[in-house]
Amino acid sequence: MLTPADLGAIWLTLKLAGVTTLLLLLIGTPIAWWLARTRSWWKGPVGAVVALPIVLPPTVLGFYLLLLMGPNGPVGRFTEWAGIGLLPFSFGGLVVASVFYSMPFVVQPIQNAFEAIGDGPLEAAATLRASPLDAFFSVAVPLARPGFLTATILGFAHTVGEFGVVLMIGGNIPDKTRVVSVLIYDHVEALEYAQAHVLAGGMVVFAFLVLLALYLLNPTGRKRR
């Protein structure tokens, strides 16, 4: 039922979502921690920038990424200078785009979880002579586990569901940038509805299972405190 092209696209999509989620947990956790703890004036602007992809259409993001990462854009000049080459039409480019695109879905749950911990446990850790770093890893992170779980699932799922940005900067190259959502679009456009159904139906089932897992694993989401 699934052709080699379908399987290639599925594998690529999972790889993209996996790498993106991993990077986002690494980048997003410090940002979330800072947003949760800071009293700086910059909290508002930074929080707004992180949340931008929720509001902006993917075409806006894709369009600007194409210009920024192109040979005439600042990012493109930098990557060419650094010997990486241009990012559009490459897997690395998709990862960069996806990190921006899925950022709020990872940062916000972790930030909420950190905020919910409050000052108490961290002050208690400090009186027990835990260093800030120790307190972060031994107290804050374990207490924020539901937030991390939500962030991981949402970040992964949102990247799997990415379409507009990939379409605009990907170039539809098999096994490099042709992800499942783009392949489905191709099938539909080419009137290959039977092949589209297999993948599209699979996406619906996948999305449902992911969200179901989220609600089953995190039943105390509202009471977390």
């Binding site: 559009p88 039409f89 170039g171």
Partner: peptide, 20 residues
Amino acid sequence: RFVQGENIAQTHQFIATGNA
């Protein structure tokens, strides 16, 4: 070395922005 636009307008955009 192909990069594909979903239609001819997007293909033009890839070239116009210098990415291809």
